[in-house]
Amino acid sequence: MATGGRRGAAAAPLLVAVAALLLGAAGHLYPGEVCPGMDIRNNLTRLHELENCSVIEGHLQILLMFKTRPEDFRDLSFPKLIMITDYLLLFRVYGLESLKDLFPNLTVIRGSRLFFNYALVIFEMVHLKELGLYNLMNITRGSVRIEKNNELCYLATIDWSRILDSVEDNYIVLNKDDNEECGDICPGTAKGKTNCPATVINGQFVERCWTHSHCQKVCPTICKSHGCTAEGLCCHSECLGNCSQPDDPTKCVACRNFYLDGRCVETCPPPYYHFQDWRCVNFSFCQDLHHKCKNSRRQGCHQYVIHNNKCIPECPSGYTMNSSNLLCTPCLGPCPKVCHLLEGEKTIDSVTSAQELRGCTVINGSLIINIRGGNNLAAELEANLGLIEEISGYLKIRRSYALVSLSFFRKLRLIRGETLEIGNYSFYALDNQNLRQLWDWSKHNLTITQGKLFFHYNPKLCLSEIHKMEEVSGTKGRQERNDIALKTNGDQASCENELLKFSYIRTSFDKI
């Protein structure tokens, strides 16, 4: 039985969820670079991206490699990797027998973001014989899940209580170790020597080791999670996991709180800001991140802002960003909400898709409305799209047979046209069989910064309504002859009103 693990408890099935942008060198404390989270699957090609990484700022997932063999891993080693800020997950990587050479110096898994409450997941690794993470000293947050690894031993010899604050939620089941077939031998045991430290858990006094050649490092209890030197002297209180010299914040392997210019500090002093819960960055760093993602459509890219001495992905609820200094300031009234469309555009074809934009005031991208039916549609669209004030790209209304009016965009005031449909149009209306009105132009103002209007096959939309939009939106004169079809717009509506004058002759039985 794995020490510190839980057996036999019912657990939810383990679901495996399925960018080499360097964020800056980590400095003297770390020998390499800070790398983003990685999802490495199918083959070993991307694994080489770990070569210079000291910190993975995010998670590391290595999974679904069915053609790899043990010899493929023999020359692979990433000794610079010290810390993973989120979680480490391995799933069905064939041929991998140990992690001792792959990650010989991995010391800390912070667990800032977890995989279903777990910071370390080893699942269905069919050839893994031992973990071998002999320098792993601290899992700051989260638990361990090690399950269905039929060859995995050296679990009962690990004292997880020396690595985690609590072992109650560890789930370590259905491994070879369960069948008591392992016969784990710690260093020196074969020669009758006791080389590794022994600890007591559940009444068992057991030597602690990761492999037959690597003991588990056990520091004096007084050192807590700070770690200790090879001689057993406690590291500085700002260290986490390990250090090369005692009581020196510049000799830590990793930091308990924050890293700044080669030393570990309790908090980031001005003019620095907390970033990702582990390091200090200056304003320029946060500003660069903001600008890199301002026009990016890459998933996970955030326009970072500053709030409460932190550089964070977005302002919290009730705050909006001051564009001059990136500071989050309290909103006066309802907060603006910028919604970034991942692929640059979004099609609204149902109430469900409209709900995804609920509360958005600025759309960074283009909207395509293609709704053919739905219950209580006008009210639903207004509830979900009615706060949109600005669209950076274009607005396209296409084959939306259920629409009679666009009044559900009740606050839309600006279409920038930074991206144009077919390279020309910022407003595009095609084949809307029941569209009769755009907006009530006596109450609604709309500016279209650039781009043209396109109207074709809107049989109940009168040309007068379209011409009014040209005047109000500032697009009059931009359109070419064929942009607004004269014969297919309003051709099934009563669009022309003329005053009919009647004269009559009164007659009676005795007068003409």
Rank of each mutant, 00 (worst) to 15 (best):
H28V: 04
V34A: 04
G37S: 05
M38P: 01
D39N: 11
H48V: 13
H48F: 07
E49H: 03
N52A: 10
E57P: 00
G58C: 01
H59T: 05
H59L: 01
L60H: 00
L60E: 00
L63H: 10
K67T: 11
T68N: 01
R69W: 04
D72H: 04
F78K: 02
L81K: 00
I82G: 03
M83N: 00
T85F: 03
L89V: 00
L90P: 00
S98F: 02
K100V: 13
L102G: 03
L102K: 00
L102A: 03
N105R: 05
N105T: 07
V108W: 09
I109C: 00
R110M: 10
G111V: 00
R113G: 12
L120M: 04
I122R: 00
F123S: 12
L128C: 04
N135K: 13
N135F: 02
M137G: 11
N138I: 04
T140V: 07
G142Q: 00
G142A: 01
S143D: 13
K148L: 12
N150R: 13
N150T: 07
N150D: 03
E151G: 14
L152W: 01
Y154M: 07
I158V: 06
D159M: 06
D159G: 10
R162S: 08
R162G: 04
D165K: 05
S166M: 14
E168S: 15
E168L: 12
E168T: 07
N170T: 09
Y171T: 02
L174V: 14
N175Q: 13
D178T: 11
N179A: 05
E181A: 10
D184N: 05
C186G: 04
P187Q: 04
T189K: 14
K191I: 14
C196L: 11
P197S: 07
A198W: 12
I201P: 06
Q204W: 08
F205S: 07
C209S: 01
W210T: 05
W210E: 08
S213Q: 06
S213I: 09
C215K: 07
V218F: 04
V218D: 06
V218Q: 09
V218T: 09
I222E: 04
I222N: 07
C223F: 01
K224R: 06
S225N: 14
G227F: 03
C235W: 01
S237P: 11
C239K: 00
L240W: 00
L240D: 03
N242V: 12
P246C: 11
D247W: 03
C255W: 00
C255L: 00
R256T: 08
F258W: 08
F258D: 01
L260A: 08
L260S: 02
C264S: 00
T267Y: 03
Y273G: 01
D277P: 03
R279F: 15
F283T: 06
F283S: 07
S284C: 02
D288K: 04
L289D: 08
N295S: 09
N295G: 14
Q303N: 11
Q303C: 15
V305H: 09
V305I: 08
I306P: 02
N308D: 07
N308I: 07
N308W: 08
K310Q: 06
C315Y: 02
G318F: 05
Y319A: 13
M321H: 05
L327M: 07
T329K: 10
T329F: 08
T329V: 10
P330N: 14
P330T: 10
C331W: 03
C335A: 07
C335I: 02
P336Y: 09
